[in-house]
Design a protein around this nucleic acid. Structure first.
Lengths: 242, 242
DNA sequence: GCCAGCTGCGCACACCGTACGCTGGGCGCT
DNA sequence: AGCGCCCAGCGTACGGTGTGCGCAGCTGGC
């Protein structure tokens, strides 16, 4: 801090305090603040400078704790995976409801942090993150105790995960669009309507499907659509049981 | 090309030719070149300057034909969707094989252009692109002629699409990692092995699943895994038929 | 022959990720 | 007690990025 600006009246009050006034700067702190920034303003707003600023630090200070921006994001993502709940009920016969709850938890987590959608495709799944491994192991356990053929449990798992992430990703992308436009979901749908109708002009089935959904609560429709697909996937998996 | 340096000796030979020597610059041309660049070097390599350079034009010239980079990407994505084949066999009873072929075509398209994965999450699905609409309509047609309950066909469609994109996205992300590291898939897996094994130390089921896959051809395993999940999803959908 | 309109371009701005080398405080050793 | 090392944090700088703006020159219509 010894560098001198043309600052006029340097005094005890303007001069930075000696010593580390904050508990310094830690990887956990950085990731936590990054998450706050991401949740508030989305993926585009995350820059090393802004993040450093929020922590009362310079941009390049962060590099002492994190190799680069990509690694920071990887850490943030796995931190989020920590929010996913996988609870196994005592009776393995309840595997369907367990899996259902788990799938909803995964979806809800993604929708709570829609910026995830933008990075999942560049990251795969950061398969080796500790929190994700915890989730996979728990779900794998759920499936095997439900007497899923041992060699199949992992494939069943990735089937379900693919469905949930695929669905939630496209929902999250839509939420991102909403957030950027600042509109309410209901009114955004209404505004998109004419464009959609025109685009679907030569496609009778699509047009009918659209007009059937007109007026329904879009959020509820998303939820119901998710549940429908989830039920189908679980139906499909169930055929392999026993 | 016609671009001018700080020229010393202006002459007929250095002076830009009169008239448009190229068919100028069109949106189609721009999108086509963008696709070439994306396929060759991935999403990070796509910059307006580089793209302009490849077309013998300045970066900002592109903005005459495209509103901004995001719109350009949207166009590129829908262009890619044009590669998806949806063929309906004459007999509606074959809906499963039709859907299977279609799902494989979608997956193959994504894997042929792995940069798609990075972008799908920010785009949703660019639902209104003409090519995507063509694909949806065709698949919807396939499902309804297979006697799917009319109100359900669209939900069935999005279930299947969610599964396929979810699966293919995570595969594509892996392919992106591979491409960046320049390694062969087989050797990359082998190199990742120790890290994976250590990360899975406290997770017996994961560890077993890993070691079961050791030595198998990873590419074939991906294909088989995809087919497995696809069969399950179709099983699940089939329960709703009739 | 002239004029309008449009295309492409150069420049500029604000911002990005991050390599590098300095500084100054805290800690452990002598 | 004194010294020296280590290392967190910072300032600066470099080579990029997307894109707004206003100019120049060609082209087609009169």
């Amino acid at each position: 801090m010894a560098t001198e600006q043309p600052r006029a009246f340097q005094s005890v009050w303007t001069r930075p305090r000696a010593g580390r006034e904050q508990p310094a700067l830690s990887r956990e702190q950085i990731v936590a603040e990054a998450l706050r920034l991401l949740d508030e303003e989305g993926i585009d707003a995350l820059s090393m400078r802004k993040l450093g600023g929020r922590l009362g630090a310079g941009a390049t200070s962060l590099y002492r704790h994190v190799a680069n921006k990509d690694e920071l994001i990887e850490l943030a993502v796995d931190e989020i995976y920590g929010e996913i709940e996988v609870s196994a009920s005592p009776d393995p016969a309840n595997w369907r409801t367990d899996m259902t709850r788990c799938a909803h938890s995964l979806r809800a987590t993604i929708l709570r942090h829609p910026w995830l959608a933008s990075v999942l495709g560049e990251l795969g799944m950061s398969y080796l993150g500790t929190n994700w491994m915890r989730v996979s192991e728990a779900m794998l356990n759920l499936l095997t105790t439900a007497r899923f053929p041992a060699a199949e449990a992992d494939r069943a798992l990735s089937t379900l995960v693919a469905y949930v992430t695929g669905m939630a990703t496209s929902e999250a992308a839509w939420l991102n669009v909403l957030a950027r436009s600042g509109q309410d979901e209901q009114t955004a749908v209404e505004r998109l309507w004419p464009a959609a109708e025109e685009a679907a002009q030569d496609h009778p089935l699509l047009r009918e499907s659209y007009s059937d959904q007109r007026g329904t609560d879009p959020r509820a429709a998303r939820e119901e659509g998710f549940q429908y697909g989830l039920d189908r996937v679980l139906d499909g998996l169930e055929t392999r049981l026993k």
